[in-house]
Write a protein that binds this DNA or RNA. Structure first.
Lengths: 227, 227
DNA sequence: TTTTGTGAACTAGTTCACAGCT
DNA sequence: AGCTGTGAACTAGTTCACAAAA
């Protein structure tokens, strides 16, 4: 009963210092996707067990993850799909519109800029930034404008940027995050290989394609050696 | 002392049924990257402590991860960089040349095909596959040819394909992995959002961009609410 | 002396199982 | 009766701390 805060009469919320595991936040995102799907299919109520069976999850874990943020279920009934969906969107901060900037207008940056999955959940890819003069002034196929990195400070000041994605070559990644942090961006998704340093208060998440591939390679090597 | 196999006179290797955690295999890939870097800088010997300090890791964990696969270190000295690098490459299966096919020649598939990080560690992106007739016969900017999915079976038979990357729209992802599995590919890296089903014996790894972004959004929402 | 390799201790994460609510 | 919310039990992963080796 310590560390709780009643934010409104219905839902309790954890305080910031009670840190939520990243595994949990990842799952919340997955639960939301599942709910979107079954909501789209016209289902109005769902039990943790049904969700678990349907999507290969564990029922107790679903309940525990959700219960951490409030009492969203109804005993004997389950969860109301639209209701839980709305609550999850709020918990994940998807109720407010988030603006994303992509650093690096290479193949990967341009692909990310036009990735349809992002807009779908309410993210707005507002701008690409690059150093190459021949790219500046142009835009991605999907219409995201490419600016000079020198413009980042000015543009980030003019209109809030919530998240930066780093899609620059590895050696430029650290200086680019440093810049991104210096303009006040507090969340970074890094696609370049290798670890980056950010000050505390800034959330860094990495998508490391090399590590993913090499991890698969390991599996194949094991399989190959004895199996 | 149970579950070990001496594969050669020098190095012990775990048997396949002693399953290695994915967290460990991911770290092995990171260690290899660190070693490549310090090897490039001309360093010949390194202790777990130095590696840990340099790259923000834990020394005991490095030693434990490595010791699981053999006795690569020298007490009182540390690890010989080139030697350990070679051993890690072998453990990760990077000593043999791995061939990768990408399913889906959209923005993301094309970007992945030309991603320089892959070739660097010895992966060969051999082909893209798509259903769109206007793409077939063309190639990525970097020269990776685009084939019809109908050709997958024939091409996979002609020359071994070790890994498939799935970069098709979400609703096509499950049928596409099913196809990939049916031609005998045993390792899949999925970039489409949502979980996929594969038979046991096939290793599936997911890179879920939506989950990553929403997890960052959660952090911002927390920060915003009370901070 | 230095640093590995590793059991033991600890910490985090998951699953069980059931009291309690509808 | 049915299903949530949750302490307790369990499992996995990390870090400590030190004996053994060079």
């Amino acid at each position: 009963m310590v560390g709780w805060a009643l934010v409104n009469s219905q839902n309790k919320r954890r305080l910031a210092h009670d840190h939520v595991s990243e595994l949990t936040t990842n799952r919340l995102s997955i639960y939301l996707r599942c709910l979107n799907q079954i909501d789209g299919a016209g289902v109005t109520r769902v039990s943790s067990q049904t969700l678990a069976d349907e999507f290969g999850l564990n029922a107790a874990q679903i309940r525990k993850d959700l219960a951490y943020f409030g009492e969203f279920g109804v005993r004997g009934v389950g969860y109301y799909v639209k209701d839980l969906r709305r609550n999850l969107r709020q918990i994940l901060g998807l109720d407010r519109h988030l603006r994303v900037a992509i650093m690096g207008a290479g193949n990967l940056g341009l692909a990310l800029a036009d990735y349809p999955g992002f807009r779908q959940e309410g993210f707005e890819i507002g701008a690409l930034f690059d150093v190459a003069n021949e790219k500046i002034g142009h835009e991605s196929r999907g219409g995201v404008p490419i600016y000079s990195v020198k413009e980042l400070k000015r543009l980030a000041r003019r209109e809030r940027v919530d998240i930066a994605m780093i899609a620059v070559p590895a050696p430029k990644a650290q200086p680019v995050v440093d810049l991104v942090v210096s303009v006040g961006i507090k969340a970074v998704l890094n696609f370049s290989p290798g670890a980056l340093r950010v000050p505390s208060g800034v959330k860094l998440k990495g998508v490391d394609l090399t590590v993913s591939l090499e991890s698969l390679s390991f599996f194949l090597a094991q399989d190959h050696a004895n199996g």
